[in-house]
Design a protein around this nucleic acid. Structure first.
Length: 704
RNA sequence: GGCGGGGUAGCUCAGUUGGUGAGAGCGCAGGAUUCAUAACCCUGAGGUCGACGGUUCGAGUCCGUCCCCCGCUACCA
């Protein structure tokens, strides 16, 4: 239940990570529910602010920029724009949509960090790491190559030697070099700041104990983390892309701040705050943001997907608590995941419906409806195009659209385009009007409990009741026999349509606006951006609760007719399904689903690999492992034990007896306590299916 | 493997603190109707509530074990 004591409500949707476009899975998790909630709160008349923005830092964006040979800023500029426009087309009613590369975000994050540093919240740890003087940056372990101290192999990674399987630390390597520039790395000490979650645990637990009413999937995850005991987390990184660590803080700790940035999960949630500040500045009231973030009367609600629970329920609250000035989330109604046609969504495989592409084909409200009827509120759910079509045709068009259309067009014809009077009204009329009166509260109760499917179903039930009512009252008969009765019927039916235009507004904002125009109904508060903020025009408008009373006055003029929802033909969804199968590759345009080619490899490098034919003598699943099969392979001159990470795709019998191709000189590697002496070559198709690469020749044969 | 969330009618999903004959929408079958977007309305068929034990007068709802799906994590071809 909503806490009516709080006077204003601050709603956030997870910041999308802009290394690609947004798809329907994102919408179902963090965006559509948040938008419905925000629009509802505005219609209720509560002071409401809805905030989101692009998350633009972190390693994946840096790597993507390197791949494409452009600056990271170019990547995030591209997707920030694309994502923002797609959200707008979908009807997301953000009061502000910011971005974490904005100067104000950098300033806000740095101030936040500075405050925690100054008040002694952080601990610092210094460790020696390798530094690339040419690239001017510290090297992650896998970016260091060199000679293995144990076996002399000259191309070992910084974390492990592939030749002897030994785990290493980068500093143990002889003749180390940078994998980026080939420069000889220097050993330098690097210091990082840590958020000591361990010692913050009890205060977090105290806070969480006041939130036993959160969704079970959220509480379960959170309790599990607390039971395990929280560990300190580093909040800075040696990276060239991100929010720079404040120089003054670094100087005070006698640390060189150059090349150090805030870790992305530290700065990203602060994006909620900086976007609010940006909103306030644009409004010309730079201090206005503090009301939302620092006043105890403010209720903060984060909408996210289940993968984000720990950050929003533990780490960010810990940061806010440590800072001291901020309110903590009142609720974090995380959703589970949406599947697509029975398979999980995958950006890398292109198994997704991209929002910007969807919007080229169908109206936003159709998707809003279809997704909302099937939101993954308690468990993962499945989106299919066929179901989408059925929802739109059978429910939106046939049930809702047809109800308002038959009502409206009848009134236009029979009553000269004006709302007919209720007159005395019969018991049936009063029954329908009572159903209308109860609906806003019922729908609202479900929304406030974050049960959006139930809320939409409740509203749609009123449309069904309206259809039933008209069938029973048969106004086409009473029109001539008893005109006053006919007038009462149409009056009640029009009131019902008017109620629907309000209670469905959060779900179908564009369609409900059109519906109200058809009904000649004006003066509802704006559910869109700015509608939850104080403004002169807002006063005098009617609200959600007012929809419990008849909204139309007898004699008032009706607007023009029009079809609200048109049906989707089979061919239209077939096109979408076909697009899915073909486009199995990536969000990028010309990609057909094939994995992109690796960069060229010199022949000398290729020649180092010794490929042999081998016969799989036996294959058994490695106990307690999810992916590994332990194979005994006959190479003719010897038998090898090889671990293949294919158990999710292949059964042991798929390999046993097969003559396969083996990388015979691959450095041994330990996994699950077992040594793997080589690798079985596998081919993978665009659907992700695996099959061994086989040969007819005898074991030991050389493959070139 | 560890931790968390799920496995309920053909399909997609609801089922609060255990208690009248287990629900909705869609799909299907039959009927009624014609104001309306070949729409609407009524009726019906349909499930041993993942499997096996247990607690209880009584369990989809609580406990235990196992199987399958998803997320985080661990050792990711």
């Amino acid at each position: 239940m909503a806490d009516e004591k709080k006077t204003r409500i601050l709603i956030t949707s997870a910041l999308p990570y802009v290394n690609g476009p947004v798809h329907i899975g994102h919408l179902a998790g963090a965006y559509l529910p948040a938008d419905i909630y925000a629009r509802y709160q505005r219609l209720r008349g509560r002071e409401t602010l809805f905030i989101c923005g692009s998350d633009e830092h972190g390693v994946p964006i840096l790597l993507r920029a390197r791949e494409e040979g452009v600056e990271p800023q170019a990547i995030v500029d591209r997707y920030h724009l694309m994502v923002r426009e797609a959200f707008e087309g979908f009807g997301m009613s953000f009061d502000h949509y910011g971005r974490t590369s904005a100067p104000l975000h950098h300033e806000t994050s740095r101030d936040f960090f500075r405050k925690l540093a100054k008040t002694g919240v952080f601990v610092r740890k210094t460790e020696a790491q390798l530094y690339d003087p040419e690239a001017g940056m510290f090297l992650a372990d896998r970016f260091v190559r060199g000679t293995c101290p144990a076996c002399g192999h000259d191309d070992a990674y910084g974390d492990q030697c592939e030749s002897c399987g030994r785990s290493l630390s980068p500093r143990e390597l002889k003749n180390p070099r940078s994998a980026i520039t080939d420069a000889v790395p220097e050993v330098r000490d690097t210091t990082h700041w840590y958020l000591p979650l361990g010692r913050m645990q009890s205060s977090l637990e105290a806070w969480l104990s006041g939130h036993e009413d959160w969704k079970p999937n959220v509480l379960g995850q959170v309790r599990s983390w607390l039971r395990e005991g929280l560990e300190d987390r580093a909040v800075t990184r040696d990276l060239p892309w991100g929010v720079p660590v404040p120089e003054d803080v670094a100087a005070e700790a006698s640390v060189d701040a150059r090349g150090k940035v805030l870790y992305v999960w530290f700065d990203a949630p602060i994006g909620y705050i900086s976007a609010t500040r940006e909103w306030a500045e644009l409004r010309g009231e730079p201090e206005a943001w503090e009301r939302w973030w620092k006043d105890g009367d403010s209720e903060l609600v984060h909408f996210i997907g289940k993968d984000n629970i720990v950050f929003h329920c533990i780490i960010f609250p810990a940061m806010l608590q440590a800072h001291g000035d901020y309110v903590l989330p009142a609720n974090v109604p995380a959703n589970e995941f949406l599947n697509l046609e029975g398979r999980k969504l995958s950006t890398s495989r292109g198994w997704a419906v991209w929002l910007h592409e969807y919007l080229e084909a169908f109206p936003a409200d159709y998707l809003r409806y279809a997704l909302c009827t099937n939101l993954p509120e308690t468990k993962d759910t499945d989106f299919t195009w066929r179901d989408f079509q059925a929802r739109v045709n059978n429910e939106l068009a046939d049930t809702l659209g047809n109800f308002v259309n038959r009502t409206h067009s009848f009134a236009l014809r029979a009553f000269g385009g004006k709302v007919p009077p209720l007159g005395k009204g019969g018991p049936e009329d009063r029954t329908l009007l009572e159903a209308c009166a109860k609906t806003p509260a019922r729908v609202g109760e479900a929304i406030e409990g974050f049960r959006f499917r139930e809320a939409l179903e409740t509203a749609m039930a009123l449309a069904r009741e309206g259809n039933r009512y008209i069938n029973e009252r048969e106004p086409w008969k009473t029109r001539k026999e008893a005109p006053e009765v006919c007038a009462s019927t149409l009056h009640a039916a029009l009131q019902c349509a008017a109620t629907l235009s309000v209670v469905l507004d959060p779900f179908l904002p564009a369609s409900c606006r059109r519906l109200r125009a058809q009904l000649g109904l004006e003066g509802l508060r704006d559910s869109g951006p700015g509608g939850g903020l104080g403004s002169p025009s807002r006063e005098g408008c009617f609200t959600w609760d007012d929809a419990a009373h008849p909204l139309l006055e007898a004699g008032a003029p009706l607007g023009d007719a029009g079809i609200l929802f048109s049906k989707i033909a089979n061919e239209e969804v077939e096109v979408q399904v076909a697009k899915l199968v073909e486009g199995g590759g990536e969000g990028r345009e010309e990609d057909s689903g094939y994995v992109p080619l690796e960069s060229p490899c010199a022949f000398e490098d290729f020649a180092k690999i010794d490929l042999r034919a081998g016969r799989v003598v036996s294959a058994v699943k490695v106990p307690k492992s999810r992916k590994l099969l332990r194979c005994e392979v006959d190479l003719g001159f010897e038998h090898r034990q090889i671990l293949a990470g294919v158990a999710e795709h292949l059964a042991p019998k798929d390999l046993e007896g097969k003559r396969v191709v083996v990388v015979a000189n691959l450095a041994p590697r330990k996994m699950m306590g077992l040594v793997s002496e080589g690798m079985l070559l596998m081919a993978e198709d665009r659907e992700g299916r695996l099959a061994p690469v086989t040969t007819d020749l005898e074991p030991g044969s050389v493959v070139r």
